[in-house]
């Protein structure tokens, strides 16, 4: 878990990135890194769920395929939890997992991105989700 807190500011918003691939986490983190919010990283589903419960993030970026709890499971947990009503979810998937996308959108995901994705595109989606 890596938390980068902008100096001298109260935590405004929290974004959780959950992906088992560190290079993807790094890419997402580098893309959306902003003074407006805090980015937290999780390398698997269980870790992500722990962070989400603890910090009630405004946005979660979920890799669908992860060891342990999959992104879809975490998504369902989020949607099942009333205290996380405000939490937006963006799914990161490989194109081959179209069924996962459908399942994810039906389960309440706000958006999805297919790997490889454009970092600028991702940033747009994140900003939309956080209504910045």
């Amino acid at each position: 878990m890596r938390v980068r807190t902008p100096p001298g500011l109260e935590i405004v918003r929290i974004v959780v990135i959950a992906d088992d691939e560190s290079s993807i986490r790094l890419l997402v983190h580098a893309t959306i890194e902003s003074d407006d919010f805090v980015v937290m990283e999780a390398s698997n589903g269980a870790e992500a769920w722990a962070l989400i419960q603890q910090h009630k993030p405004g946005l979660v970026l979920l890799d669908v395929q992860m060891p342990g709890r999959s992104g879809l499971e975490v998504l369902r947990l989020i949607k099942a939890d009333p205290s996380l009503k405000a939490t937006r979810v963006i799914l990161l998937t490989s194109k081959a997992q179209e069924t996962d996308v459908e399942v994810g959108l039906m389960a309440g995901a706000d958006f999805y991105l297919t790997k490889p994705f454009s970092p600028l595109d991702l940033l747009t989606r994140v900003e939309e989700a956080l209504q910045i």
């Binding site: 790094l26 890419l27 893309t31 081959a96 997992q97 790997k115 490889p116 600028l120």
Partner: peptide, 25 residues
């Protein structure tokens, strides 16, 4: 297998393409 290969290839590809875009933009 197809799904796995696709996933396995897309992951590094996503990093390479993503960082390249970041560097370019």
């Amino acid at each position: 297998m197809v799904s796995m290969v696709s996933h396995e290839l897309r992951t590094p590809l996503a990093s390479i393409v993503g960082f390249a875009e970041l560097l370019a933009t």
